[in-house]
Nucleic acid binder design. Structure first.
Length: 952
DNA sequence: GCCGGAAGGACCC
DNA sequence: CTCCAGGGTCCTTCCTCT
């Protein structure tokens, strides 16, 4: 089945959507399968003698009479109708429920009195296997239906309906056929259970496909009715060709209700879409309010309607809706089998989590008010009180005056103008903001360790300040805020609590120039967060919020209220730790670690550019070159190189794709030439690939046009290496890093002390990973989400980040203590192909590992040296020296040179990177079949979490 | 069993 | 009339191809 499914052409599209036709064909297919399967099963498992008298295994009754499920094969009235009077009397002499299916037998026409009575006698022995066989047949047919549903119905939202309809129709038929209402528990159970399984599986498959292939909205009317009244709740507009949105709540009950409840009001703008259009920052829209939230939403909606952007949002909204429906479905099915002890289980977890509560610290989040806008006001006081925004095209900030009209950050200017016609827009002036930010941070540092989260936001650990000065947190934060205002002229808001999670929410409460302090008691923390809307919590975005709303949750307190639901769907909540994270959220817990991000924490550098959409290849090339240049400049300025480059394209349709390339294990990209070449190469390749895919009739992103029409191009460099670190290491070729001396050196050093550190760091990492959802740091008492919050994502506004640039060497050095990716112990033998490729692509030694984070990784060094020597002689001896010589000369002299590929003997002109890339392409990926596994990570995690907790 | 690359998403500011 | 950014991080899933 799987084979057939994957092999099946994807071209089938629901064009003329005809529910009747669909249900008829489904029903037909279902019975077809039954009729194929049942005879075989029954013949195998049932008493053949009996069968003979009932018309054999091909008797229609097997499929149509519910009573066969009971194992006994009876026929009551239906049979008697068709049989002679003599038989009827014989029948009626029997009990109403014991006997045999005379109908079929009669149809077969092979009945004589002797065998009849013989049969009757035998039948009374009761064929125990019959019921099981038939049930099995039904289950098989139901599973086959999954296939049909998947291909015929396709839309996840409709699976439930059709599935239930099928059963419903069968019910009617079987009642008619046997002239009695099914009273067999077994029958109901089998039919019910297989339906549930069928629905769940089919939906999942469909959702998966839709996620994969993208959405075919060909059947959706592209244009929403103008006077869309969101309020006809359950109107039946006939079903016509509209697209239904699922309106019935889970738990609506029977099949019939489900079918009826369906409202095919495809033309109504859903609240979710309205909300979506309002942008990400639509919360508490009434800040002062020259316009009501409703008005604002409407204006935005009107302004957006019909645009490409709008269509994209609509598409996403549909996808999200499916996701929500899916999780609702899962919940519904899980509730059927719920054991009833879920709440206790959750309570136990809560208790366990609560034990780790940490209240000893005083953590503040300081957040500048309308930061960019405020900076401009500082420069030009005449701006005060006027409505203006910062950023052309897209607002990054709106002044408070502009906010009264509903203008928000991340809002396009032209919409802001609709909301507030007199809004002024100012150009961004990064230098201004950076300078101001630095001033703020400097001030903050007087009050304790700080962790900038972005230009305008930072966490401050006030614990020691409070202790030393003998002041309350409230007093401390008041001083701090006054201090900042005095020294910078900017107002800031602050939230204070025992952890970052709460402080973040608290800072929002008295937003402009205000503060909110939460007492350091468990009660205060919990009481505080209880009433918060979910969306307020860091980490809960639009999608998660909608998902949770779908489960009935609105506020943090609902996490507790609906803990059973959450528990039941805990494996489908997105990433694996979410469930426990939510629980800890409810408890008002969070990380309290305030650590400044270091230079080495940067993971990627990227540049992207939006432009008026074009499909002109030259124009696109040109833009990409500019992007490459900008990226190269960034990298050069901060002295980083990267191993993998990623091209990202945003199509005219707003669908995004990314295409990445990693030339080789030890090839470091950094020069403009290389970036440009690789970028263009990726772009070309994508153009070709896409065109080819279209020719093949596959579905691709960005419309059906054979050429890419893009509105954005971007390049991003990842797998970074800190070149300052490399420089600090005595290495011959800091640029192209192929020198063996590196490897020797690193080898030495890590064997001695770094190796130890690395191991320790690595295991610490692992522990942290494992402790994730347990919300405990085995070592420091911090946790997953917040870790990313306070720590790494502090890189925030990219190149303006304060942390980043002009750091001194000591920072670099300290950066190395912090090991990143778990580079677990040595991996002795690399796969042959890998080794070959690696060595071929000019890796000889290993500066490889991201030197920036630390520990010139022992493993990396070890990993390569042995492999190299062991590598297939043909490849390595031939190619490597040649490569190396070439590259060395290249690196030292000019960026571009000639070179002969050791494999294909072609002569190429290009830089080192290009060469390596070329050579690498000659080698296939390892031909190993990687069988995949989905380890129930929750189990391991849980175990680890517990372990960690105990340890603590 | 893990690593690792590639692709896609969710989130944040 | 022009008509929705750009900088990041982290996490998950799937692993070749005509």
């Amino acid at each position: 089945m799987t084979v057939a499914m994957t092999a099946a052409p994807q071209r089938f599209r629901v064009q003329g959507w005809d529910p009747v036709l669909i249900i008829v064909s489904l029903q037909a297919l279902h019975y077809l399968v039954l009729s194929l399967v049942l005879p075989a099963l029954v013949t195998i498992f049932s008493s053949s003698d009996l069968l003979q008298y009932e018309g054999g295994g091909t008797s229609i009754a097997l499929a149509m009479d519910w009573r066969v499920f009971t194992g006994s094969t009876v026929s009551g009235i239906a049979a008697s109708r068709k049989l002679g009077a003599g038989l009827v009397s014989l029948e009626s002499a029997r009990s109403a429920t014991r006997g045999w299916t005379a109908a079929a037998a009669a149809a077969a026409g092979e009945l004589d009195a002797a065998s009849l009575s013989h049969g009757v006698v035998r039948v009374l022995e009761y064929d125990a296997f019959r019921g099981w066989a038939v049930a099995l047949g039904w289950v098989i047919a139901s599973m086959a239906d999954i296939f049909f549903l998947y291909h015929i119905v396709r839309r996840p939202t409709h699976i439930l309906d059709f599935s239930l309809t099928l059963v419903f129709v069968h019910l009617i038929l079987t009642i008619y056929y046997s002239s009695s209402f099914p009273t067999s528990f077994f029958f109901w159970f089998v039919v019910g259970a297989s339906s549930v399984v069928q629905i769940v599986l089919a939906e999942q498959l469909c959702v998966k496909r839709e996620m994969r292939d993208g959405f075919s909205l060909g059947d959706v009317t592209p244009h929403l009715g103008v006077e869309m009244t969101p309020r006809f709740p359950d109107l039946e507009l006939g079903q016509a060709t509209g697209h239904g949105s699922k309106q019935s709540q889970s738990g609506d009950g029977t099949a019939q209700t489900c079918l009826r409840k369906r409202a095919w009001t495809g033309e109504e703008p859903k609240a979710s879409l309205l909300k979506r259009m309002a942008g990400p920052s639509d919360l508490k829209a009434g800040v002062g309010g020259k316009k009501t939230a409703d008005e604002v939403q409407r204006i935005i909606f009107e302004a957006s309607k019909g645009s490409k952007y709008f269509n994209d949002q609509q598409r996403r909204d549909k996808e999200l809706e499916i996701k929500v429906n899916r999780i609702k479905g899962i919940l519904a099915s899980k509730e059927l089998t719920a054991k009833g002890d879920e709440e206790q289980k959750v309570d136990a977890i809560l208790e366990e989590l609560a034990e780790k509560r940490e209240l000893s610290r005083v953590i503040a989040l300081i957040d500048a008010d309308a930061f960019y806008a405020a900076c401009h006001e500082l420069e030009d006081p005449s701006l005060k009180g006027t409505a203006f925004g910062v950023g052309g095209g897209m607002l990054t900030t709106a002044s408070y005056e502009a906010r009264k009209y509903g203008c928000r950050s991340a809002m396009p200017l032209f919409i802001a103008k609709k909301l507030c016609p007199h809004i002024k827009s100012l150009k961004m002036e990064p230098d201004l903001y950076v300078a101001a930010s630095k001033k703020i941070m400097v001030t903050l540092e007087k009050y304790g360790p700080i962790a900038p989260a972005s230009l305008d936001e930072a966490y401050v650990d006030l614990t020691d300040y409070c202790a030393n000065q003998g002041v309350t947190p409230t007093e401390a934060i008041s001083r701090l805020r006054a201090d900042v205002q005095e020294t910078t002229g900017l107002t800031v808001s602050a939230g204070v609590s025992p952890n970052k999670t709460l402080s973040k929410i608290a800072a929002d409460i008295n937003k402009p120039d205000g503060q909110f302090v939460i007492d350091s008691t468990a009660e205060a923390c919990q009481a505080f967060i209880k009433g918060a809307r979910l969306r307020k919590c860091y980490g809960i975005g639009r999608v998660t919020e909608t998902l949770l709303n779908g489960l009935g949750l609105e506020t943090v307190n609902d996490i507790y209220k609906y803990r059973k639901r959450l528990y039941l769907v805990r494996d489908h909540l997105g990433s694996s730790g979410v469930f426990r994270w939510l629980l800890s959220l409810y408890l008002g817990m969070g990380s309290n670690r305030v650590v400044r991000a270091k230079r080495g924490d940067r993971k990627t550098y990227g540049v992207e550019k939006t432009f008026t959409p074009t499909d002109n290849r030259d124009a696109l090339d040109d833009i990409l070159r500019k992007v490459a240049k900008s990226l190269a400049k960034d990298l050069a300025r901060s002295e980083f190189s990267g191993r993998t480059i990623t091209l990202s394209i945003k199509h005219d349709t707003y669908e995004r794709v990314t295409r990445a390339f990693t030339p080789g294990k030890n090839v470091w990209i950094r020069s403009y030439e290389d970036i440009c070449r690789l970028g263009l190469h990726l772009l070309r390749k994508e153009m070709d690939d896409r065109a080819a895919a279209i020719r093949r009739g596959e579905k691709v992103k960005g419309g059906k046009g054979p050429r890419i029409k893009a509105r954005l191009l971007g390049l991003r460099m990842s797998n970074l290496r800190d070149d300052r670190w490399v420089k600090a290491t005595p290495s011959k070729l800091p640029d192209m890093q192929l020198s063996d001396s590196d490897s020797d050196m690193l080898h030495e050093s890590d064997n001695s002390d770094e190796g130890e550190g690395d191991g320790w760091e690595a295991s610490k990492r692992q522990l942290e990973q494992l402790a994730k959802d347990a919300e405990v740091d085995p070592l420091a008492g911090d946790d997953d989400w917040d870790d990313s919050h306070g720590g790494a994502s502090g890189s925030g506004t990219g190149r303006w980040m304060v942390v980043d640039d002009d750091d001194e060497d000591d920072v670099v050095l300290s950066g190395k203590t912090r090991s990143l990716v778990s580079r677990t112990s040595s991996l002795p033998l690399a796969r042959p192909t890998t080794a070959r490729r690696t060595s071929c692509s000019a890796s000889s030694g290993s500066t490889s590992t991201s030197a920036k984070h630390s520990a010139p990784s022992s493993s990396a060094a070890r990993q390569h040296s042995p492999t190299d020597s062991r590598a297939s002689p043909t490849a390595s001896t031939d190619s490597r020296p040649a490569m190396k010589r070439k590259t060395e000369s290249t690196a030292s002299s000019k960026p571009v040179s000639e070179f002969t590929c050791p494999v294909c003997q072609k002569t190429l002109v290009g830089s080192e990177t290009a060469m390596s890339g070329h050579v690498a392409q000659h080698f296939e990926m390892p031909a190993k079949k990687s069988e995949k596994k989905a380890p129930t990570s929750s189990v391991t995690r849980k175990g680890a979490g517990k372990g960690a907790k105990k340890k603590r």
